[in-house]
């Protein structure tokens, strides 16, 4: 059954969308959480909202599609962080829904997390994405689809990504 059929079928419409959601919510949230911190839930909702409103073409690999959209939305959110909210607003955010609380990356106090995110942030973006996606368990075909690269290049790119990550991570004071 194609994604479109699953999502758009009139029989059990909610159940079909729900089953996709239930199967992939956790991994998409975790992926975005690594990228964004506390804004992850908000962006993850955006991703599934897009799946509901604008599903991919019939026959698509919807897991890869979800990661593609999550990557795009996550990067958009990172770029829009130029106007950072004040701490005061973030404290106020404590009393709001956790989906709306301040971006975790901005309030990071964990040294290790900060080092890892800082290392990722200074890497070639493609390498950082590949590293996070592979860590999430995507296979080489899915990695190629989500990042728009050739499947046969994934091994080389991953080896370079891991080497670059280690260099940047050590430069940030990390230890291996």
């Amino acid at each position: 059954m194609t994604v479109r059929a699953e999502i758009r079928s009139t029989d059990g419409l909610e159940q079909d969308f729900d089953s996709i959601f239930l199967a992939h919510w956790g991994e998409i949230y975790r992926y975005l959480s690594r990228m964004l911190g506390d804004e992850a839930e908000d962006v993850a909702q955006d991703v599934f909202l897009k799946l509901h409103l604008h599903p991919p073409k019939p026959g698509s690999n919807y897991r890869a599609w979800l990661y593609t959209v999550a990557t795009r939305e996550g990067l958009n959110r990172l770029r829009s962080r130029g106007r950072q909210r004040s701490l005061f607003e973030r404290l106020i955010g404590l009393w709001r829904d956790d989906a709306d609380s301040g971006p975790e990356a901005e309030v990071e106090s964990s040294d290790e997390r900060r080092r890892v995110r800082a290392a990722l942030a200074t890497m070639r973006p493609l390498y950082a994405r590949l590293l996070l996606l592979r860590h999430e368990g995507l296979d080489y075909g899915e990695l190629a689809e989500v990042t728009g690269t050739k499947r046969s290049s994934i091994g080389t790119l991953l080896a370079r990504a891991e080497r670059q990550f280690e260099e940047r991570y050590l430069a940030m004071g990390g230890s291996v």
Partner: peptide
């Protein structure tokens, strides 16, 4: 292995309850 260990530091401490998250998405949709 070292990269995997380092990246695991970014593991979220919890995942929002899936049922509540689903409800929010339906609400927005």
């Amino acid at each position: 292995h070292r990269a995997r260990v380092a990246l695991s530091a970014l593991e979220p401490t919890s995942t929002p309850p899936v049922e509540a998250a689903l409800e929010k998405v339906w609400h927005r949709a």
